[in-house]
Write a protein that binds this DNA or RNA. Structure first.
Lengths: 323, 323
DNA sequence: CGAATCCGTCGAAACGTTTCGAGACACATT
DNA sequence: AATGTGTCTCGAAACGTTTCGACGGATTCG
């Protein structure tokens, strides 16, 4: 409501002087700045973001795109992103769904971090081509305006397989994510390599990275059950689905059936038996992604970063020797 | 980059005609509209949100303020909000932290839904006073520009107490949230009323609505333990904290120690034994909140809404008779 | 047939900033 | 005294829309 113009009038100076004063330009004398600040305060002036954006072409807001708001998975990641961003004077908004894509071309946000499989490569490339800066977390995309923080999926999947192997497991199933998922494919690739190296026959069941699909997968595995069997779920969410299923049977997890996941979601720690899984710092992942994005926005060059993983043992995987 | 002006030039019409055409005004003939649309398409025109906002004074974006991005608690709520909003042509952005408050006065968003105890009443009232429309979910605030969807905390707390009572429990502890929490206070009030009615002596331990504080509370309770004791945690998060603690002792939950929570978070279902708790539709809560907000924005009157609760039994509470 | 009505189009102002270039003034330099 | 050098302030244009009022031409009406 009250604009820079009102301040100018009341303070008896020009509009431009007010603007300079408010923005801390050295062009204006300390005395007039104080006067202007006082008037602004008195009038309860608040800058109009739209007008400023129209002129400066930037919003100091960056968007984070998620597939859905559900996943407990995201908490730490968002925290990491937010910390970095706020510290550099940027704000974070979290978005989901196709509608919100408009923020990118319409310049509501300066850049985006994407962790949303429903956001197509094609669309992303289109925006990148328009000059928008983007960091993707769930795919690799080759474009000067797009960067990527590499999560070491393969190392993680290999760790998981080794853990099962060392515990004596030889009949192993893997429950994959959707075929289109980059993470799933990377992890699966490592599983296959491991299998080949050890001359194992790893059976593959396709899931959708959800609890429900995990439950379905469990059903299939149960039908073919030949004791003892270990299952590597390519994410924890599906592992929880297996838990749900096997609780209804007389197989006990960690004894008759062995499960390991990937992601170390919160639930993995609280469910019992403790789910063995692959952990990585989601917070750091988010922090690195934002740092990359900010560098891109300020025209600096970015070096490729990588997130390391580690194994979290859990009672969901028992040793075959001490049955 | 390409603006309405470029379209006008290329199509050989005036700027205003382009604007009318693009906005589907009946003032322009179908023929010219098609021509303009074609040119816009060809030029890959995208409207500039800042310019439009500057003129129309609205963004068609509403903000949802959360204390932090952590809580798995929010998923369904956000889903409910988003569905309603999208259907009415609005977008949702999720925000957290003081910095983002600027969106309200700076007109980046048309209105806000607040579920964030760190957002002070005073500040909220200030924005309301400026004319911003707000729906609060975690407090009651009396202002024409602020509304509220009522969650039946008292009924929920009473249900929980009755459940414990009917299962024969008489030595009951309640673990509260922070003193400043509206929800905690409402629930606690009902607990006290129940205690008075049944001439019970309910011991109160103060928590902070987090797992860690639940664990601490458990420690205190354990020291005073006199079998059998039931604990009503004023939210599930803290109940999970109790689980963590008691797993380290030789008390088994649902047998020697009995626990009930409030909120029915996802974890409550997957933890074992299943946590008894109070459930309510978070999705509906979100949906009602957004509907209220949209009504306020269009100047309609809003009627007060209320969310009902129900008891979810769980094995975390056993009957005292069949020990 | 002249006047009234309607319809599609247009020009221009406005929204609230930022920022460039120029103006005004004071002071120092030759 | 004329010129030069800074310093502070100002006016005006620009960003990309929306929308009001006006305009001219075609149609309808009495």
């Amino acid at each position: 409501m009250v604009s820079i113009k009102d301040i100018a009038k009341k303070a008896g100076v020009s509009i431009s002087t007010v603007s300079y004063a408010l923005n801390g330009s050295p062009k204006v004398t300390e005395e007039t700045r104080q006067k202007i600040l006082a008037v602004a305060e008195e009038l309860k002036y608040v800058p109009n973001a739209a007008a400023r954006t129209l002129k400066t072409r930037e919003t100091k807001v960056i968007g984070l795109y998620l597939t859905d708001f559900g996943g407990a998975f995201y908490g730490d990641l968002l925290q990491g992103v937010k910390e970095v961003l706020n510290q550099k004077g940027y704000d974070l908004i979290v978005c989901s769904g196709k509608r919100s894509h408009r923020f990118l071309p319409e310049r509501t946000i300066d850049g985006a971090i994407v962790l949303d499989a429903t956001f197509s490569d094609k669309e992303l490339l289109k925006y990148a081509e328009m000059g928008k800066k983007i960091v993707v977390l769930d795919r690799e995309l080759d474009h000067p305006n797009i960067n990527h923080v590499f999560l070491d999926n393969k190392a993680g999947a290999t760790l998981a397989m080794e853990y099962l192997w060392e515990n004596g497991h030889r009949r192993i199933y893997v429950v994959t994510g959707p075929k289109a998922s980059y993470d799933s494919n990377q992890r699966l690739k490592a599983v296959r390599q491991f299998a080949e190296r050890h001359e194992l026959d790893v059976k593959e069941v396709e899931g959708r990275f959800t609890k429900e699909s995990g439950e379905l997968a469990a059903e299939r595995i149960f039908q073919e059950y030949e004791e003892p069997t270990a299952v590597f779920c390519l994410n924890d969410e599906m592992a929880v689905g297996l838990y749900m299923y096997f609780r209804k049977t007389d197989l006990v997890i960690g004894r008759h059936i062995h499960i390991i996941g990937f992601d170390n979601i919160e639930l993995a720690e609280y469910i019992s038996p403790r789910l063995a899984t692959i952990d990585y710092s989601k917070r750091k992942w988010g922090a690195l992604a934002s740092e990359q994005l900010l560098k891109m926005l300020s025209g600096k060059s970015v070096e490729h970063e990588r997130i390391y993983v580690k194994l979290i043992p859990g009672e969901s995987v028992g040793s075959l020797s001490n049955r």
